[in-house]
């Protein structure tokens, strides 16, 4: 370190060292972000570029051939008679999941926000499925949802003949949604709970002084003030719903028929079960576009529905 540079230059200034404070800081900054930046380039950006490249090719793993096929995979995408059904299943799954998840999460958060003794125990229990291994959770639900499983057993005790949940199209879809919601709703629940606790109490007191009834307080004060959290959780949940794979693979394998074959599962089947890697890449691009459009749309919505931002 150049300390005590007293031999001043003619103007009375010592000459500046090359490694000024700002330069050293810049170097430190680059070093600090280097692992993350390189990682993103190698494991995200380059693969993303490759997905486009692969979608123009057919790759045969066994023969180890990689041939250019032009827009053939895209042609296939348009002509794929399964695709519409897959996209329909994806839409139903995501929409059902988001609606059910967010409304249940909000309901639970409101309940947990009440001043009741032992509320922490309830919070812990509602949250517990989040930390249960995903596949373990799915397996036990699969077990419960068997034709002669626990759920139908209970229903039978009540004199109700239950359906074969995972083998009928409608109930299979409902089942995968429900299993996923109960697994992860705890996360959104605590986000909502934190948001509810962040609403200043004076606002409710002011509303009570103004004579606003409870449901009106909720609609006019609570909802607007937690709207940023609602938006945030809906983005996380929607994007997350498009990535749901294990539950489908374990519970229904996409069936019956294609009724629960969501896009990720279809992509996996095409690429890794049928080894259509080129077509799998094309489906990846479709998935990427859907995620990007949804995220963008929701950020745009922020301007309109979010009343308040912290």
């Amino acid at each position: 370190m150049a300390v005590a540079q007293d031999h001043a230059s003619p103007e009375g200034r010592s000459s500046s060292p090359f490694w000024t404070i700002a330069r050293r800081d810049s170097l430190a900054g680059f070093l600090f972000i280097a692992p993350q930046l390189v990682g993103i380039i190698v494991f995200v950006l380059i693969p993303l570029g490759l997905v486009f490249w692969y979608s123009l090719h057919e790759w045969n793993v066994l023969a180890n051939t990689f041939t250019y096929t032009g827009a053939q995979n895209y042609q296939m995408l348009i002509e794929d008679s399964n695709l519409l059904e897959v996209l329909g299943a994806t839409a139903v799954f995501s929409a059902g999941l988001v609606v059910f998840n967010l409304s249940l999460a909000l309901l639970l958060a409101i309940l947990l926000n009440q001043r009741l003794a032992g509320i922490t125990i309830f919070r812990t229990l509602f949250f517990s499925p989040v930390v249960v291994s995903l596949v373990a959770w799915t397996i036990v639900w699969g077990f419960l949802l068997q034709k002669n499983g626990g759920i139908n057993g209970m229903l039978q005790v009540l004199g109700i003949e239950g359906p074969n949940w995972l083998r009928e199209e409608t109930t299979a879809m409902i089942s995968v949604i429900v299993v996923q919601v109960f697994k992860n709703v705890g996360l959104n629940m605590i986000l909502f709970l934190a948001a509810l606790q962040g609403v200043p109490n004076e606002l409710y007191e002011a509303a009570r002084v103004d004579g606003a009834p409870r449901f009106k307080q909720f609609r006019r004060i609570t909802l607007p003030l937690i709207s940023p959290t609602i938006l945030l959780t809906s983005i996380i949940t929607i994007v997350g719903s498009l990535q749901v794979f294990a539950q489908i693979a374990v519970l229904t394998q996409g069936g019956p028929g294609l009724s629960t074959t969501v896009l990720v599962y279809y992509l996996y089947q095409q690429a890794f079960q049928f080894h259509f890697f080129g077509y799998g890449s094309t489906l990846s691009i479709l998935l990427f576009l859907i995620v990007a459009v949804l995220t963008f749309a929701q950020w745009q919505m922020r301007k309109r529905i979010v009343f308040y931002e912290s």
Partner: peptide, 25 residues
């Protein structure tokens, strides 16, 4: 103190120009 850079002129502490020195120095 050296927490902001000096755009022009000169700061001397004890007769030593400190413009480009770290706070710690």
């Amino acid at each position: 103190a050296g927490l902001e850079t000096i755009s022009g002129g000169e700061v001397k502490i004890g007769g030593r120009v400190v413009n480009d020195l770290d706070p710690k120095d």
